[in-house]
Design a protein around this nucleic acid. Structure first.
Lengths: 215, 215
DNA sequence: ACTTGTCCTGTCATGCCGTCAGCTTACCGC
DNA sequence: GCGGTAAGCTGACGGCATGACAGGACAAGT
């Protein structure tokens, strides 16, 4: 699957080279979570990795290129998010559980990949196709099975057929993504983090089924 | 209200100085909407404004400082968003209209200030208090009156009292903000922009009233 | 030990950053 | 109109990040 790892000038990287490369990626990830994206410099990353800027440029064209690498790694991990929706039931009480677990799982994933997702989101918003595609991969991993679930319910007459399934799923995933991104904002509105799930989960349930959540 | 405009070294700016300053801000705003934030350089802004980098540094400590200025201007404009909720009715049919106008108005404001809001959002997510506060100002201009509306309905027994009003309002505003930020994403899900309002508006209505939207 | 290919770094040209001294311009009182 | 004063602008400079290259260090096989 993973093609040969190559340096910028075309050589194939050996064992030691891959280690160095990985160390650079790790340090970059670390830097991203501690300083503003705009201020992340190659020289800092190199220093932290105990190597020189020249080495960095051997493996990556620039900071953005390395960030893309990290982002793609994360996008691969995001397949695990499918499990939050696939094969789950939306009927009655179990629907409540499904929506709660979806909210929980999604927020956890976002929090885990906080820093890199911030940069991906920015890149996507700025119109960069590569970042946009990565963001899509992550969100689609939930949005697609969710849209399928809505279509299923519509077919069984258990959900509002007038709603576009993909639009519903997209809106709900956006809601989750945005809530995940700005958890700090909620506290300033006097909302405790623990209030977030009880609020989001019913919204998801409502969006999917078109019915008020049972209690 | 607005104190004297001052240069970095303390001089008060006169007519000509203010013009230059404003031209720099305009050019920066332009640059932000055409190139990635990370790549916006002082020298480019200065060149576009037909002046020198040194002049830029006379009015702003750095790029971020100037961006903050633009953002604060925008935050002032955001008071107009209050009107989208204040004094509106959520009962029956008129509730549907209210939610639709809220969605429309909010999306329009966000689209108008696209570029600067992107940077504000990034800064806030990275933990910068100044950007965070500005983002709060914008979102609060809708979230506060919306929370009041929910409390009102709760008091009248027309909404679910178990929900925290502020949390509901916060989640809904986050939903709108996120949808506004990533309109392009929706099209890749096969969702037409015009499908967005019919999807978001009922979600808002549902969130506020806890009832399924009438049609 | 020698060869081969990978890996790292010293060094250099280039370009942006951020500051300062000093020159020019506008305004004001006389 | 004349000089004084403060505002406005820029050339120039040290400093640092970028990105390219060539050559030295190193590991592995022979």
């Amino acid at each position: 699957m993973t093609g040969q790892v190559r340096t910028v000038d075309g050589r194939v990287a050996g064992r030691r080279g891959q280690e160095t490369r990985q160390k650079l990626l790790d340090c970059l990830r670390e830097m991203l979570s501690t300083s503003p994206y705009r201020d992340v410099k190659v020289i800092d990353v190199a220093r932290m990795a105990g190597t020189s800027p020249a080495t960095f440029y051997q493996y990556f064209p620039d900071v953005e290129g390395a960030v893309l690498e990290i982002a793609e790694e994360m996008a691969k991990d995001s397949v695990e998010l499918k499990e939050l929706v696939d094969g789950k039931s939306w009927a009655g009480k179990s629907g409540t559980t499904t929506s709660e677990e979806l909210v929980d799982g999604f927020l956890a994933f976002w929090r885990k990949n906080d820093a890199i997702l911030r940069v991906v989101t920015l890149g996507a918003a700025e119109g960069d196709k590569r970042f946009f595609k990565i963001r899509m991969t992550v969100l689609n991993s939930v949005a697609k099975p969710l849209a399928d679930a809505v279509k299923d319910l519509q077919a069984k007459g258990q959900a509002d057929k007038a709603q576009d399934a993909a639009a519903v799923a997209g809106s709900l995933i956006s809601l989750l993504a945005s809530a995940a991104e700005h958890q700090k904002a909620f506290t300033s509105w006097g909302v405790k983090i623990k209030d977030l799930k009880p609020t989001l989960a019913p919204l998801v349930y409502l969006g999917v089924t078109g019915k008020k959540a049972p209690r």
